[in-house]
Design a protein around this nucleic acid. Structure first.
Lengths: 261, 261
DNA sequence: TAGTGGTCTAGACCACCAA
DNA sequence: TGGTGGTCTAGACCACTAC
């Protein structure tokens, strides 16, 4: 490992800014398997000496690899190749709760509550939930983990009429809704990607800037009333969403047209 | 705008590293509307003087906002609040091509070809396409844009038997497949998020590290043969995928079980 | 040409971890 | 206690843009 960055190697490593060259050198070492998960990199000061760069430049070269989750830095300890994270796959075409979904594949689910209570609704919530004047909203915010690994942040808003006592929700929101006879039967989700901000990244235990999957879900009762408006952030490196597509039908009365006319 | 960063403001701006404080200050100014799209920030050297920080620290504070697309930096010109990018929404439950999808909402589509040809398959392609010994693979790599804005990178692999002449593909791959009588009727997609590497970021005209939506699609003929194996990267800030969910049925023979048993 | 962001340096101090 | 990463500085040169 100490022969990773001889000054000679570094000279030949191609064009571009020095920190990009270093980034490429390390990324290739990981991709080729010369650096394996759990391996440690030389200390930053050593890498600087070996390459002839300043420590600031070395850190800049390493930065993107840390941000993308390929390297892990531990203060006081060192820089390591990240362990392989097992990707979980979730089927997108079914309306299930996180708890149910994990249970189905035999995983324990832990929830850490960040906030739980009744509030005056934000304008966004009034819109999404179709609230009237004076209506209150139940908010649930928690970090979902499986086997000790944080996987997602979930921020749910429901009309207080449907969930007057948010404190009653323990593991599964849908279980509580089911008991109250207001389990949703239909939902529309929007999926996009975003870099995690400092707060969200800390909640998920990853560096700021890592790519996350952002999912907005609006769920409906059979009557058409909105049950929940949930914004979730999943770790991009730990989650896959899978969906099956069918050939676009010619008739106009299908789900897609309702979603994106 | 020049009163954004008085030393006084900065003193009160709370705890944490200095660059985080600066980041928060700017982020709040954008969120609150005090900084609007198109507005310019003071030059880095000026911000350093106004806050009492070094320029390196100012750059570090701005960095995350540039990576997440909220700010745009132009060498020789300045730092600006990013224009609002109109988010496009794509329905996930239908099997349509990019070209058809855009046409349906009245948008022009441009494709820039990066590569197009017949090759010996990579192991990954042999697996996904179910190729036999000696089979060749047609590869199509292009950047998809709409109204001049790059939206996605598309890397498609097909059995050469189904597409012996990749050069024949112009705008729509599915149109060519349709003409050859081998248009897919079913597909399975996997969606995740990833930070864009330098190469992909450059193709999409965004900074390295921005969050992108990564989509892997495998499409099938009615016979069950695989038609295409496509890996796409969408700009996370420009694309939403929408999908409608239904209540999970109790029977075991449904799409989700086939996708994620 | 003057001003901007992009890169890079040498050196410093701190917080944290492991022996 | 010694070594690690985390933060920060003052100053330099370059490439590019706008005038």
């Amino acid at each position: 490992m100490s022969d990773l960055f001889t000054p000679a190697d570094f000279e030949e490593s191609g064009a571009g800014p020095l920190y990009v060259q270093l980034h490429r050198l390390i990324a290739e070492a990981i991709a080729s398997g010369r650096l394996k998960p759990g391996d440690s990199l030389p200390p930053e000061r050593d890498m600087a000496a070996m390459t002839g760069l300043s420590r600031v430049t070395v850190r800049k070269g390493v930065e993107a690899l840390v941000a993308s989750g390929q390297l892990v830095q531990k203060r006081g300890s060192g820089t390591f190749v990240a362990p392989r994270v097992e990707r979980l796959e979730q089927a997108l075409s079914l309306l299930t709760s996180f708890t149910e979904d994990m249970a189905r594949r035999g995983r324990r689910v832990e929830s850490r509550w960040i906030a739980r209570g009744l509030h005056a609704p934000a304008p966004e919530e009034v819109m999404a939930l179709g609230l009237g004047a004076g209506d209150r909203v139940a908010r649930l915010e928690r970090v979902r983990s499986s086997d000790g690994v944080p996987l997602a942040i979930e921020r749910a808003s429901l009309p207080a009429a449907l969930l007057p006592d948010p404190e009653a929700v323990e593991a599964s929101l849908y279980a509580v809704l089911e008991a109250r006879g207001s389990r949703p039967v239909r939902a529309v989700q929007r999926i996009s990607a975003a870099n995690l901000g400092p707060r969200d990244a800390e909640l998920l235990g990853v560096p700021t800037g890592v790519a996350g999957l952002r999912i907005e879900r609006v769920s409906y009762l059979p009557s058409g009333q909105v049950v929940e408006f949930t914004r979730s952030l999943y770790r991009g490196d730990a989650y896959d969403f899978a969906v099956e597509l069918k050939l676009a039908p010619q008739n106009q009365d299908n789900a897609a047209e309702r979603i994106a006319p």
